[in-house]
């Protein structure tokens, strides 16, 4: 039950973040979406033992977070919540791949641990960039961007509708779950049977709601086509944004700056 509330507040919080007005928020959503995609593809195109070359990629989310004035800790916690699946799959690497790939004095690291770390870094980067995208763009704008970039309108509209009614239905579901838990004792009443009735009722109510929404749409001239009057404006700023970041990502893909810098330092010390 508290989970429902948390999820609801969470959606609401992300939504609030995306409603701010900063430089990061003002950039056309298409530019941000495209840049994030290029970012993710570049990050995951690295070999599985790569660590140092991935580090410069933290610059992109860091810049967006500060430009968008987003809460770092909050986003980081959101990543931690979903990391278990990646850990579950990745943890087998150290168990299976025991070949020593790196020695640092008395410590030796097996390839498995390196690739595990690499997975974790990639996960943080990719998941983080998606959260940053949504927090400084907003879901509706991402949907509009998708539609303008060629996604079928039916799908874009479906996303918008879904997002609109998540707020209503989560509220409804949490009221039902509350009503159930207030009247169930010693775990009785929380079994599958009651659950089936509960969801069944919610589903029927949802279908009735769909009917009323359809009626409301018909009353305002709906004819099967949803029209949205929204002009997205992409100017030179967006072009520069996309190209500059993409160039940076690709450069970082081919030149391992940390390694070069590190070499310079270690060589000058030695």
């Amino acid at each position: 039950m508290s989970r429902i509330k948390t999820a609801f507040l969470d959606l609401g919080h992300m939504d609030t973040l995306s409603g701010r007005d900063t430089f990061a928020h003002r950039i056309d959503p298409r530019a941000k979406l495209l840049t994030t995609l290029i970012f993710i593809i570049t990050v995951i195109s690295f070999g599985k033992y790569e660590i140092s070359a991935l580090i410069p990629f933290f610059i992109f989310p860091a810049v967006m977070i500060s430009l968008g004035e987003l809460p770092v800790y909050y986003l980081f916690r959101k990543i931690l919540i979903v990391i278990p699946f990646a850990v579950m799959i990745g943890i087998f690497n150290p168990l299976i791949d025991r070949e020593i790939l790196m020695r640092l004095g008395p410590f030796s690291l097996s390839g498995g641990w390196i690739s595990f770390c690499s997975i974790m870094i990639k996960f943080t980067l990719t998941a983080g960039s998606v959260l940053v995208l949504i927090a400084c763009t907003g879901f509706n704008s991402v949907c509009m961007a998708l539609e303008k970039m060629g996604a079928p309108r039916v799908f874009a509209v479906q996303l918008l509708f879904l997002y609109r009614y998540i707020f209503v239905l989560i509220d409804e579901a949490s009221r039902m779950a509350n009503a159930r838990s207030l009247r169930s004792f010693d775990g009785k009443g929380k079994g599958i049977k009651v659950f089936g009735y509960l969801l069944g009722h919610l589903l029927l109510r949802t279908i009735d709601r769909a009917q009323r929404i359809h009626l409301a749409m018909l009353c305002r001239g709906f004819d099967g086509e949803i029209r949205v009057n929204r002009r997205l404006e992409a100017g030179i700023r967006e072009v520069i944004f996309t190209i500059a970041w993409s160039a940076f990502f690709i450069a970082m893909r081919f030149y391992n700056i940390p390694l070069i810098a590190g070499k310079l330092i270690t060589e000058s010390i030695l």
Binding site: N140, L160, A216, R220, I226
Partner: peptide
Amino acid sequence: DDQLFMPTVYDDVAFGPLNL
């Protein structure tokens, strides 16, 4: 909540006129 189904207030109010 049944009547306001679009993402923003603007979109919602514009829904009818756009269909005209």
